[in-house]
Design a protein around this nucleic acid. Sequence first.
DNA 1: GACATTTGACCCAA
DNA 2: TTGGGTCAAATGTC
Length: 356
Amino acid sequence: MESAATWQYNALINELTQGLEKTKQLRNHLWSTSPPEAQDLILQKILSSYDKALLILKWGGSNGAATLSTPETSVSVHGSLRSEDLNKNIKDNQDDMNASKKRKMQHTWTEQVKIDSENGLEGPTGDGFSWRKYGQKYILGAKYPRSYYRCTYRHVQNCWATKQVQRSDDDLTVFDLTYKGRHTCNLSFTNTVPPPATPEKQELELNYGHRFQGQQSQALPNFTNSLSVSTEDLVNVEMPAYFSFQSTLAFHDEENPYFPIPALLDENHHQEGTISPQLISPATSESNYFSASTYLRTPNVQHSEADAADIISAHASTTNSPIGGMAFLIDPTKLDPNFGFNMPEFFTYSDFEHGQ
DNA sequence: GACATTTGACCCAA
DNA sequence: TTGGGTCAAATGTC
């Protein structure tokens, strides 16, 4: 077997090569009359390739002990992102630590999402969790305020996951989402109890001037019924699914299922014309989501700045809301057997902040 | 009344 | 001292 370092190098070359090839393809498309959808798909591949390449570099660069397992052995990755495991261990050993220190040591990652300004309803990620806004602040050097969200069930289930939403200064349709901590809440709770108003719902109201009354609670069951995936070896789930085209990184850690561990997916997971569960759903058994992150073309942004920031938070937390994303039927047989569902957090990888 | 967001104040690490 | 993150009172919505 090749060494991890060798494989990382090869994977890096591969991803960069793919990015280059797809860029060329896109160029050709732009010169032709290719349908926008095809161009979007290529864009997604380009972005995912660079995402993966960067990830590889970061692992290799910031963590010399990173040991990406090879695709031949498994798509899951062991030994990487040890900072998170370290955090976990520390946390486990110091449960009496004060909250601020706990938060400081929480694992953190970010993702970038791009909104569709025309129909914000099909915005980026649905992370499957319910968030409550607890603050907003203008950050030095940033044009737009940063919004702070915590898990709605912080007090009920002692879930300390938080999320920050920061609009990009450069691209009005791009937002940086920073997730901190992992969800410890049991989403079955959120599914059996009518969820509170989600940020997205409220924010969409702000932007579209109407309420989605009842849609969240009503649409979910239908959606859930339309897409039921049984992952028997892991857990049986009724799984509202959201897809993300933003990243092709799946996170799976067999030993620590509640810690997302990146795994590179092979080409079978993102072939053109097919929809692949490129992202591991979060969560607990009752709630597994694929992100509906959609890099949508377009950008005649017509929302106000504040509104747009809200939209993104909305999309970042399209809790139980199929509105927030595109629904696709999943063929369970096409799912990678190593595709973990019992992840507490589902996210689109863009960047890990650890070690940066 | 319950639960949401807003927003100024406060805490604390750098 | 500064700036990011969080708290909590005020306020809004259902």
